[in-house]
Design a protein around this nucleic acid. Structure first.
Length: 301
DNA sequence: AATTACGTCAACCGCTACTAT
DNA sequence: GATAGTAGCGGTTGACGTAAT
């Protein structure tokens, strides 16, 4: 035999909490402290499940909860911690004083996640989503891409399999060329099985910059402003920011804002930080510049 | 002004690990 | 040791507000 049930679910109230219920719960916890959620509703005179009371207290009524918009530093911390911890919202919340796991989770899903996607960054892996690039339309619209050597530049930063498929769309001859090239440079590709670069991997500490030459028709064909498609995982010392130990020990809120976030971007200003600035900083956390007017990523979102 | 689409977030649901009986 | 309850977590939902048409 185990314990008796904590509550009668048939008589439980659900839905939004009323001010009266909030007052009862708050008063009870002020008098007796949090905990023992099983018996709390009955003692406090609430027709709620203890689980619901705990959630209401921890997510809304707790006096140390910080309400309002997330600051730039908080957002920075969330992104860094998420890159290390993943969807461990409670672990992330533990390093953000005054913020609840639920709040952080909501903010991630409604703001940060979308921003990363818009920037072409996979919000799960925090890596560029080049592996999802719509290469077929890109290649069809850019005959210059038949230049195999240019594609090899891309090869180093994207899933080889995706590139192989893309080449197949052009011609079998090119695919053979690529396979020959790959055979000759086997040692360069054999460790590239993952389709994306993992932020946590040891190579993250090294400078990983793949830059396509400015005279490269691959980029010039779809880019008039930015002369390079760059993946720079080390600028702004992300090895320090993303290193597991440093992230866990430096939080909460100890990471300084990167220098370039003081740019004079115009637009909506929230907490002293514009959306543009926030996006700019995100690109520094994992520097991945998407050329202006390059909208292929939108097709995947 | 009315309607529709979209964004936000509080609250619920279901699951797991832990604990009491 | 087996069983059942509790606490806590992450995913999802739905009500509400706002923007767009």
């Amino acid at each position: 035999m185990g314990r008796s049930p904590c509550c009668d679910k048939n008589t439980l109230k659900k839905g939004p909490w009323t001010p009266e219920e909030d007052a009862k719960l708050t008063h009870h916890i002020q008098m007796h402290g949090p905990g023992n959620w099983r018996t709390l509703p009955k003692i406090a005179g609430l027709e709620r499940c203890g689980k619901s009371c705990r959630l209401r207290w921890t997510n809304y009524l707790r006096p140390d909860i910080k309400r309002g918009r997330f600051s730039f530093e908080e957002e920075e911390t969330i992104i860094q911690l998420h890159s290390v911890l993943g969807n461990k919202w409670s672990a992330i919340a533990a390093r953000l004083p005054g913020r609840t796991d639920n709040e952080i989770k909501n903010y991630w899903n409604t703001h940060i996640r979308k921003r990363l996607l818009r920037m072409g960054i996979d919000p799960v892996t925090h890596a560029p989503r080049l592996d999802l690039l719509d290469l077929s339309s890109l290649l069809v619209n850019s005959p210059q891409l038949n230049n195999l050597s240019n594609l090899i530049c891309l090869q180093t930063i994207m899933n080889p399999e995706a590139l192989r498929v893309a080449l197949t769309l052009i011609s079998p001859q090119n695919e053979n060329q690529l396979l020959n090239y790959q055979n000759q440079h086997q040692h360069q590709f054999q460790n590239q099985a993952p389709s994306v670069i993992q932020p946590n991997q040891s190579s993250f500490d090294n400078i990983i910059t793949q830059q396509i030459p400015s005279n490269n028709p691959t980029t010039s064909s779809f880019n008039n402003q930015s002369q390079s498609l760059q993946v720079d995982l080390s600028s702004s010392s992300p090895s320090e920011n993303f290193g597991f130990d440093s992230v866990l020990s430096s939080t909460p809120l100890s990471s300084p804002a990167p220098p370039n976030t003081t740019s004079s971007a115009v637009g909506l200003t929230i907490n002293g930080t514009t959306e543009d600035e926030r996006e700019s900083f995100c690109s520094n956390l994992l520097r991945f510049e998407i050329p202006e007017g390059f909208d292929y990523f939108d097709d995947f979102m």
